[in-house]
Amino acid sequence: MVQADILSQIILYGVLTGGVYALVAMGLSLIFGVMDVVNFAHGAYLMLAMYSSYFAWQILGLDPFLSILLVAPAFFVFGVISERLIIHPIIDEPDFAQIFATVGLIWVFENFAHYFIGTDPKGIEAGYGGMSLLGVPVQEVRVYGFVIALLTALGMYLLLEKTKIGLAIRATAQDKEAAELMGMSSEVVYMVTFGLGIALVGVAGPVMASIYSTTPTVGANYVLIAFVVVVLGGLGDVFGVLWAGMLIGIVDAAVAFFYEPTLSAPVYYTIFIAVLVLRATGHLGGSDEGLLSRIANIASSNESS
């Protein structure tokens, strides 16, 4: 039998890491859900955000968590510009155009970092140490990162549900033509959505940089996890993504503890394919709905009947 304290350690550790995974996935989910664009360069944007935070710390002496206030708005602008230059011209083209364009962005960003910054891993030493949470020793940065993930999820939820632009985004995601008939320009909505998605990367980057060190290819490691989280959690579903992130985090931690860290990737890719199989065979509803919200729906409909 596994000891209870080891189990609680794994779960705690998994939840903390998973919250950060969810933070990375939120922007991807938003852009995919609203614009039906898979941003393959999501990880490359993340890498740039991590470097931004690193340089803000190294040059300005800024605390990585504080640097979010700088990086996130800057990345919003970065996202809006990217959308105008690259996504907008091909938004109505077949899927492959968007895949190639964003893959092209990966090459540009990664090799830009490779050429101008180099391949040495860059870590931030902001003076955070360890702490004890529920009797389990953890790094402080992971706890703060988790809190930021929760706050961001809440903020996104309020933005989408309670503001005018949030309403426009949701309406456009539902039915672009209908939203346009109601006077919402999908062009503006797409610009803002992509900007927001990249701004979310601007939040995730500093958090990631405070935990992990940064290299030009660091994004690739996390973007696939983000895809898995998005498919599990649902498109544009903020809390779905949060739950899915934690689930993947726990799986990650459990596999790493009981077997070996290298095996956790195949395990969640297997989960990913399994979810797709279940969807395709009609067991999990439409392809855009989150697994977890779907289960919740089934549960509540059973209750009511």
Binding site: G104, W107, E110
Partner: peptide, 9 residues
């Protein structure tokens, strides 16, 4: 490769 990416886009 930066040029490559730009050309691709």
């Amino acid at each position: 490769y930066i040029g490559y990416g730009v050309i691709l886009i």
